[in-house]
C-alpha cells in the first residue's frame, strides 16, 4: 500500500467520486433520518423539527415494546432452528470427500441467488390451508388410517384437519429459516473446513464417542464460525420486512414492518426514524460483538 501523500492526484481522482456519491445518497439520508428521529409529528403527519426524545420514549411503550420483543424472540427462534438445520449441513459438507465439497456448497448458495420476494412467495403455496404441506400430511394421515383399517380398526386418527400455517407466526419463522440458512452455513463451513481434523481423530482414538467428540472438540473449535453465523442470521432476521409482510398474520408484525408502517399508512416519520435508528444501533452492536469475537478467536483455530 502506498501513502496517499505520494500520489495525491491519483488518490483524489479515484476516491472522490464514489465518496461523494455515498456521502450524498447514503450518509446524508441517514443523517436526515437521524435529525427527524428527534422531531415532532404535526397533526397532518408533517414533520416539525425539534429536539426531544419523545419518539424514542414512545418506542419503549408497552405496545411497541411488545413488537420489538417479538422481533427479538422471532429472530432468536429462527436462528436456533437455522442452526439446528445448518450445523449438520455445514458439517456434512466440511467432511465430505473433496470432489463433493464445491458442488454441495453451490447447492447451498443456489437458492440464495433467486429473488428474495420469490423465495418467500414460494412458501405461500406450501403453507396455505390447501397447500403442499397439508396435502402431504393428509396423505400420510390417510395411509395410517388405511393401515389400521386392515385390522378392522376404522378411523383411528379421525378426520384429517388441515393445519392453519400460513399468515401465522410459525410461517414467519419458517420463512426466515429458509431465507437466511446460507448465511449461517457458510461461516460455520469455513471454520470446520480449516479445523485440524487430527484433534477429532485423537479424541476418537482416546475412546470418546462421536457425540462426545462433537460436544467437547468440534463445537469449541468451531465456535468462532458458529457465533459469526448465528449472529449474522439473527441480525438479518431481526431487520426483516418482507417475510412477515407476506407470510405473517396481523399479529406477526416485526420491527421492520412497524418502521414501514410509520412511513406509509401511519404517516409518522419521526417515530419511524427513531425506530429505524434503534434497529440500526442494535445491528451495529451485534456486528461489533461479532467483529471482536472473530478477532479474539482468529488465533487458535488453524
Amino acid at each position: 500500500m502506498e501513502n496517499w501523500r505520494n500520489n495525491k492526484i491519483a488518490f483524489f481522482i479515484l476516491s472522490m467520486p464514489p465518496t461523494a456519491w455515498l456521502m450524498i445518497f447514503f450518509t446524508l439520508p441517514l443523517a436526515i433520518m437521524w435529525v427527524y428521529s428527534f422531531a415532532d409529528r404535526g397533526p397532518q403527519g408533517q414533520i416539525e423539527l425539534a429536539i426531544n426524545f419523545d419518539n424514542y420514549i414512545r418506542a419503549v411503550e408497552w405496545i411497541h415494546l411488545g413488537i420489538i420483543w417479538k422481533s427479538i424472540w422471532t429472530a432468536a427462534i429462527a436462528t436456533a432452528i437455522t442452526f439446528a438445520i445448518g450445523f449438520p449441513l455445514a458439517m456434512g459438507i466440511a467432511f465430505a470427500p473433496p470432489q463433493w465439497k464445491n458442488p454441495l456448497l453451490l447447492m447451498v448458495i443456489l437458492p440464495f441467488w433467486t429473488n428474495l420476494l420469490i423465495r418467500t412467495y414460494a412458501w405461500i403455496a406450501v403453507l396455505r390451508t390447501r397447500g403442499f404441506l397439508n396435502f402431504g400430511l393428509e396423505w400420510v394421515h390417510d395411509k395410517i388410517n388405511a393401515f389400521f383399517a386392515l385390522f378392522g380398526l376404522t378411523d383411528v386418527l379421525g378426520q384429517f384437519e388441515a393445519l392453519e400455517l400460513l399468515y401465522s407466526h410459525n410461517a414467519v419463522v419458517i420463512g426466515l429459516v429458509y431465507v437466511y440458512l446460507p448465511f449461517l452455513v457458510l461461516p460455520i463451513y469455513a471454520t470446520l473446513e480449516k479445523l485440524d481434523k487430527s484433534y477429532l481423530e485423537a479424541s476418537l482414538d482416546l475412546g470418546a464417542g462421536h457425540w462426545r467428540t462433537l460436544f467437547s472438540i468440534t463445537f469449541p473449535l468451531a465456535l468462532p464460525g458458529i457465533i459469526s453465523g448465528c449472529l449474522l442470521a439473527f441480525i438479518l432476521s431481526m431487520g426483516t420486512f418482507l417475510t412477515p409482510d407476506l407470510l405473517g398474520g396481523t399479529d406477526s408484525e416485526m420491527i421492520g414492518n412497524l418502521i414501514a408502517r410509520q412511513f406509509t399508512s401511519s404517516r409518522d416519520w419521526p417515530f419511524g426514524s427513531a425506530l429505524s435508528f434503534l434497529l440500526l444501533y442494535f445491528t451495529f452492536i451485534v456486528l461489533w460483538v461479532r467483529a471482536t469475537m472473530s478477532d479474539r478467536n482468529s488465533g487458535p483455530v488453524k
Binding site: 501513502n3 447514503f26 450518509t27 433520518m33 420486512f241 418502521i259 414501514a260 435508528f277 445491528t283
Partner: peptide, 30 residues
C-alpha cells in the same frame, strides 16, 4: 492507498452492505 481515518472510512463505505434494507429504504424516502 493508505490514508488517515482509513478504518472509519472503510466502515462507512461498506455500511450499505450490512444495514437492514428497511432502514436504508425509509432513509431514502426521508
Amino acid at each position: 492507498f493508505r490514508f488517515p481515518m482509513q478504518g472509519p472510512y472503510e466502515g462507512i463505505v461498506h455500511l450499505p452492505i450490512v444495514i437492514p434494507e428497511i432502514c436504508l429504504a425509509v432513509a431514502m424516502v426521508a
